[in-house]
């Protein structure tokens, strides 16, 4: 069960050179007041863009806006236990996995630590090389495992391959049957709310209610749906994470059939339902986000009508 005092954690996986570090820097750049703690395997050549760094020492880099970046070497759990002692806690933790790490295993280990809860697993794939890696004699099973574990796959650097080759990569990804929601990016540029859920309530109202919002390089669409009667939260989450709707994220509160208020969140196919620890003011509202294409309001209305019907036969 998660509660608002818990800190959401996003695991960023993907092979060497896929763009994980670029993604981290994009997120730090557009953190928009969120205090992010980034855990990286090692401080490589340039873990954080120089202009974002306020100060640094051997193991910690302080970043503008109250964000920090720490290296964990081979001991992620110890680093998280250390982070657990820090006050105030960050709003969101990003774990950048090493190139051959299995992000789902990392996510499972994070669940052992009280107060940290997995928001989602993002796997970055280099659109130029992912197919070769996925067929490599030594790496194929690791790459497939990583893709399989993803809630969201960032197919990155789509500006680089020839269109025909990119198409083949898309088809290959589809045939690999990875369930993660695929977002195509250049320079790992992706709107922050797509990859860092748990803060949809922080999206400024005017954005949440717009049907289209421009963010540098990419775009996403958001809408709010209203559910004004008790429903089964599991059914709602299940319906909203249906691939047909193509929603990357949804988050909100609903009143359950038992009268309890539940927080409902989906990230790609990942669904999290938990009892709301206090009564939120916005029960019955769910924010939905789709990438690039307009949200199919008609389809969502049907889904909601369905949920209500199931609730009141």
């Amino acid at each position: 069960m998660s509660s608002p005092s818990e800190v959401p954690v996003t695991v960023i996986g993907g092979y060497l050179g896929s763009g994980k570090t670029t993604l981290v820097n994009q997120l730090l750049r557009h953190a928009n007041g969120l205090r992010l703690a980034v855990l990286v395997n090692e401080f490589g050549a340039l873990p954080i863009d120089a202009d974002l760094i306020e100060s640094s020492d051997e193991n910690v880099i302080n970043i503008a806006g109250g964000c920090v970046c720490c290296s964990y070497g081979s001991d992620l759990i110890a680093a998280l236990l250390d982070l657990q002692q820090v006050q105030p806690q960050p709003d969101h933790v990003l774990i950048e996995a090493s190139g051959v790490a299995l992000p789902d295993a990392i996510a499972q280990s994070v669940t052992l630590i009280i107060r940290y809860t997995i928001d989602g697993i993002i796997v970055v794939a280099d659109s130029e090389t992912i197919r070769n890696q996925g067929q490599d004699r030594y790496l194929a099973d690791t790459i497939k495992h990583q893709l399989d574990a993803a809630d969201i796959i960032l197919l990155n650097k789509v500006d680089l391959p020839e269109p025909a080759s990119l198409n083949e990569t898309r088809q290959w990804l589809a045939s690999e049957d990875a369930d993660g929601h695929v977002i195509e990016t250049e320079n790992a540029a992706v709107p922050l709310p797509m990859v860092l859920g748990g803060h949809l309530n922080r999206i400024p109202k005017e954005i949440a209610y717009q049907t289209k919002h421009e963010i540098p390089h990419t775009e996403h669409n958001a809408m709010v749906i209203f559910i004004d009667q008790p429903v089964d939260p599991e059914t709602v989450a299940q319906q909203l994470s249906d691939p047909k709707l193509d929603l990357i994220r949804t988050k909100g509160f609903v009143c359950g059939l038992d009268g309890q208020i539940y927080a409902v969140q989906t990230v790609g196919r990942r669904r999290t339902i938990s009892v709301a620890p206090h009564t939120p003011t916005d029960t019955g509202k769910i924010v939905c986000i789709r990438y690039r294409y307009p949200i199919d309001q008609q389809a969502i209305s049907e889904v909601i009508a369905n949920c209500k019907k199931i609730a009141l036969p």
């Binding site: 060497l16 190139g99 051959v100 790496l139």
Partner: peptide, 11 residues
């Protein structure tokens, strides 16, 4: 299932 790599071929 097969085990884990602790370093990449490139490394």
């Amino acid at each position: 299932p097969n085990g884990l790599w602790y370093a990449t071929p490139e490394q």
